[in-house]
Nucleic acid binder design. Structure first.
Lengths: 338, 338
DNA sequence: CTGTTAGCGCTTTCAC
DNA sequence: GTGAAAGCGCTAACAG
């Protein structure tokens, strides 16, 4: 920078002013500086500014599992948003929850300006250091907020209602559910949302038709195996995410069955792959862009209201009907009229 | 840090020495400092060190497409490796090649200590600024090196040979290929590798049975449609990656056919999803961990030999046989004995 | 062994 | 409108 100042015949203070777009510089001086800057290919070093202000222009993004394509896509969406405001993303994948403690340390080291926690599977203790240091937090679908921490919830409720109505209109009455393993809180919320969607549609909720999964293919497969072994198995299921749904489809196939003939399946996420598998998956889409936007919005809110309880944001979902759902085998023909 | 020094009754130089593990400190002093550090939850600010040494302990990772799960998995593998050496990864997804210029700028700003370029689809000009600033570069599968830039190639050759032999042993003779769109160089290399694998196996290479794809599902689908319309379509194909293979399978399905009955398909990557689709995909596995390790190794080599031409590293591939390959419809029964 | 000090690159008062 | 200078947190050379 000194070098630029020297070449332009000004001081580094002036160069700094030009670069930060201060209007206190005469236009011809500014132009000259800009010329020298671009000619020399000068790129300012933000670490110096960071050192001075303690802000890194970086947000931590804690994800449970980069193997799930959904999160890869989400990182991309979030990154795009940050580019526009000249920030970076520090992605952190946390397979096991004890790694969160280390991750928090990493974020602290890198002086992140905030953190988005997409794995809700964590105990508050782990993020305590972040809160203590006044780092704004945003959780996704944790359904609870606290001082310095906002939440963006994904509106599964609406998606579940749409999905259940769709299944009901096809003639399904015994609808099962394969959930996730996450923190008791979220799991509870979702299971309740499912139950209410069922009841809201005027159907009977069968607790015996719900299973736990692990948000992965393996969990969906195991759960569907267990479900189909029952004396009265479900004719349709809704799963916690597309990976679980894919696992369920695989399980049906292993059992010698066919989707949707033997079981209708509804996923959640709408991975771009869900469209190309056979059969293409009916799923409740979580819009990544909107989710990313809401996270950033929540981040800004939290930052500006650090002393107050965080706000709750919500992202809508949308049912995408494809071919993994159909009329149940046993459905009386007349139902088709409805 | 001053605060810590004050509390421990030492100077900040001593604190710094303790934190960096210097042995020049008496054990009891060091212990005391460590106690204070952990009690106060002190976390050093690396930007200061960065400012001083110009090193950020961050590597840029330029990826073509975070939507392809392979890259998500690769980011995870690379991140794991970097954690061990206390570095971070700055992931940058580059959809269009003109964005590379901006990305390069971002990496320069963040003072990355090096960059791994997984999209080989770029002209050398775009990364010139990196080279100029003596930032070590590693390309993946670019098959060329230069001063300050090493390459890690993926041994498609071996994978193609294995795949062709596998298909030949099943009785296939007309084997097609759906490539990618990447820079002319890599595409050429792969197409050649395919051709040689075919010839090496004593089969006839039919140029008319090769198509270009786009490394995505859409490309595979379009290419297979075109291929199957031919008077004498292939009985098996090898594709540039699993997404293309999935697209090809989808295309066959759209055409009313069945994989592998109407066409055997071999992919490349071994996405974890490839195992769970129907039929599970026969594919040439690229080991992410080994690839990540090789990239880091290449990075270290380049860093230590910045003045010299980079080295070439290679990562082996491995054929994983699943159910998307089978004997061709037309195969004479006696072939089965072989 | 430990303390003092200078300086990394930048921004930002405060003078001029 | 512009320059001079201090200071962000840390490290390394040097002094003690």
């Amino acid at each position: 920078m000194r070098e630029i100042a020297r070449r332009a015949g000004v001081s580094c203070a002036t160069v700094s002013r030009v670069l930060s777009g201060s209007s206190l510089v005469r236009e011809d001086t500014a132009k000259k500086v800009r010329d020298v800057v671009s000619e020399a290919g000068f790129i300012p070093n933000p670490s110096a500014a960071m050192l001075k202000y303690g802000r890194s222009r970086t947000y931590g993004l804690v994800l449970p599992d980069l193997q799930n394509p959904f999160f890869g896509e989400f990182v991309g969406a979030f990154e795009d948003l940050l580019i526009d405001i000249d920030h970076e993303v520090l992605p952190i994948s946390v397979q096991t929850s004890d790694k969160l403690v280390k991750s928090v340390r990493r974020m602290l080291m890198r002086q992140v300006d905030g953190a988005v926690l997409v794995s809700s599977e964590f105990d508050t203790g782990a993020v305590e250091p972040l809160l203590l240091r006044q780092i704004p937090l945003v959780t996704v679908d944790r359904r609870s907020v606290q001082v310095g921490c906002s939440d963006v919830s994904i509106d599964y409720e609406r998606g579940f209602v749409e999905a259940v109505l769709h299944l009901k209109s096809l003639g399904h009455k015994r609808i099962g559910y394969i959930g996730g393993t996450k923190g008791p809180h979220t799991s509870e919320v979702r299971a309740n949302a499912f139950e209410q969607a069922i009841r809201g549609a005027g159907l009977v909720f069968y607790p015996g038709l719900t299973r736990r999964g692990n948000y992965q293919v393996t969990g969906g497969e195991a759960a569907v195996m267990s479900l189909m072994k029952m004396p009265a198995p479900p004719t349709a299921i809704i799963t916690a995410n597309d990976l679980t749904a894919l696992g369920a489809a695989l399980g049906i196939h292993r059992l010698g069955g066919v989707v949707p003939r033997d079981l209708s399946i509804v996923g959640v996420d709408d991975l771009f792959l869900s469209e190309v598998v056979q059969p293409p998956l009916t799923t409740i889409r979580i819009p990544r862009k909107r989710l990313a936007t809401a996270c950033l919005q929540a981040m800004n809110y939290t930052k500006q209201n650090l002393e107050r309880i965080g706000a709750e944001f919500s992202v809508p979902t949308q049912l995408i009907v494809r071919e993994s759902t159909a009329r149940p085998k046993s459905a009386p023909k007349k139902k088709s009229k409805r």
